[in-house]
Nucleic acid binder design. Sequence first.
DNA 1: TAATGAACTTAAAAATGTCTTAAATGCAAA
DNA 2: TTTGCATTTAAGACATTTTTAAGTTCATTA
Lengths: 226, 226
Amino acid sequence: MQILVVEDEKRLAEGLAHILKEQKYMVDIAYDGRDGLDLAISGIYDIIILDIMLPKMNGYEVAAFLRKEKVATPILMLTAKDQISDKVKGLDAGADDYMTKPFSPEELLARVRALTRRQGEVVIDEVEFHDIKLNLSTCDLSCNGKSVHLNFKEFEIMKILMQNPLIVTTKEELIVKVWGYDSNAVDNNVEVYISFLRKKLDFISSKIEIASLRKIGYRLEVKTNA
Amino acid sequence: MQILVVEDEKRLAEGLAHILKEQKYMVDIAYDGRDGLDLAISGIYDIIILDIMLPKMNGYEVAAFLRKEKVATPILMLTAKDQISDKVKGLDAGADDYMTKPFSPEELLARVRALTRRQGEVVIDEVEFHDIKLNLSTCDLSCNGKSVHLNFKEFEIMKILMQNPLIVTTKEELIVKVWGYDSNAVDNNVEVYISFLRKKLDFISSKIEIASLRKIGYRLEVKTNA
DNA sequence: TAATGAACTTAAAAATGTCTTAAATGCAAA
DNA sequence: TTTGCATTTAAGACATTTTTAAGTTCATTA
């Protein structure tokens, strides 16, 4: 799975590359629009992450040119928060999805997954842990038939906990992964969501509980028959 | 692993550098905000420890500038105890964590570790000594299956004792390492925690005991069959 | 062995961390 | 705009840790 990142801000480009490489994607970087286009036109990429503001050639131009050349690689456009109208222009130019900066690593990965799924690739879309199962495409959490829907933040937190069994996850980690590194979420935000999740675990009568380790963090555990 | 310390109080800056270097981090120091920013902007650091009150440019400004430039290096902000609202301002400006002065070396290192911990990295680290084992991520102390949870201070003390077997650790050392170099903890605080720990060692039926050497300090020893 | 200072133990008070609610806010679809 | 839902904020209840303080035990030595 190859991804091209076209982004002139070196640090951001490398950050993206880092996050993606951790998930085993192969990543190439271009630092301006023209270099990006040259690479993209080869058609070897599965996804192109494309900034709008770029030296030499902007993101709209790159996207439009690719579509004109019948290169159908899915494009994920990046733009600053305030420029709402960019969205329309980007989608017009041929972008498939669009993400406002700043964004969390989880959001980035979710969008990348969504774009690769569209190509019919089979992806593991469930995480299991003992008696519970989390459906990654519908965000439903189930246990022996019973099931509840999780909203986005509940889902992200539950997924992280289920994907890191035995490991204690700190509130800080959850804040960074779910809210983003530059959010101003506080510990209580996490606590509130943990509380929501506990209710839902009860609701589906699961034997799993979210154990909290004071001053350390949270971890999934099988309920003790105490 | 490279760390940048931006702190104008020379003594504190060097103290931090010393503590960090002992743990094999490579440390650079900047004594004012502008120099700090110049170094930080390079993006080569894994963590930036940033005081708020700084000559030439304060910590908020440095953090905000870095985030504006998309330098995503984790920032650990330092501030005096009474300025509560600093926390919000600091996190707004882009800090990832925040530590009030004074703080203990252990707290500093714990926060630095938390900020460098990579996603999905599994470090099940444990310290062992004869029949006891201390889990560094859950703070559980165990002996042949039996286990107890240690709270933070018990944990820090036990860890120090276990990591320095044979060595006698003085109360002063424990106070400095666990409570901080300028805390006002007294010897009795240590004694209380040693007492707690002894109870827990009994509880898990360990053969290890905390021996006290009058007027000198404490050391782990294997119980004599006397 | 009695006096002394050091170390130990305990209980209560204080401080801090976590949980749970409910209300307020924000956001997007109808 | 109104409505419904997700999210954030805030406050109080609750739980655990940490500190304090006082009394007890222990080891040393005069």
